[in-house]
């Protein structure tokens, strides 16, 4: 059975005409797979490589460079929250926020709660220093966050969620 969903295959196909090389579709392909599955499995990498006419090692090389993509033995939880700890956020409590959140959920940055609901990450400057301390939920910034704000965001039942 194919590891890539029809949606993933279609996204890849749509991106191909945009670039003069197939390899350039690597990041778009990795994004769509991780968004759906919470990780990019070895099998998914092989299938992406086949479509892009690359070796699976080339896909792995790129995927592993960006701390963003997860392997199948370390998948994301349903929600991924990044807490910024770079200087402007640190000056306004970013590191305390990250530490408090990790303590609250009993996990270290990069880990996922045992129920698979929440992954907490540390982030470098998210480009929202005017709203320090800030967090990123998937790809949406939330500015001026207290611990209560982040907990509320973490507990909201709404999407985005992944099939994990």
């Amino acid at each position: 059975m194919s590891e890539l969903s029809d949606n993933a295959k279609q996204t890849i196909a749509e991106h191909l005409p945009r670039y003069p090389s197939k390899q350039a579709v690597t990041l778009p392909a990795l994004h769509v797979v991780q968004q759906e599955r919470g990780c990019v499995s070895n099998k998914a990498m092989e299938e992406i490589a086949a479509i892009l006419e690359l070796s699976p090692a080339q896909i792995h090389d790129t995927a592993s460079f960006y701390g963003f993509f997860r392997t199948e033995d370390n998948p994301l939880g349903q929600k991924r929250i990044w807490v910024c700890r770079s200087l402007p956020c640190m000056l306004r409590g970013g590191e305390e926020l990250l530490a408090a959140l990790c303590e609250k959920y009993g996990i270290a940055p990069g880990e996922t709660t045992p129920d698979g609901k929440l992954t907490i990450e540390l982030a470098e400057c998210l480009g929202a220093c005017d709203g320090a301390p800030c967090i990123l939920l998937e790809d949406e910034l939330h500015l001026r966050c207290s611990l209560e704000d982040v907990e509320r965001i973490a507990n909201e039942p709404s999407p985005p969620t992944r099939k994990v």
């Binding site: 390899q23 350039a24 990041l27 963003f68 400057c125």
Partner: peptide, 20 residues
Amino acid sequence: ACAYICGEETGLIESLEGKR
């Protein structure tokens, strides 16, 4: 995909091309 070095112009180009 969340890497500061992609802002350096040739890092950006490599990243655009699908590489590290």
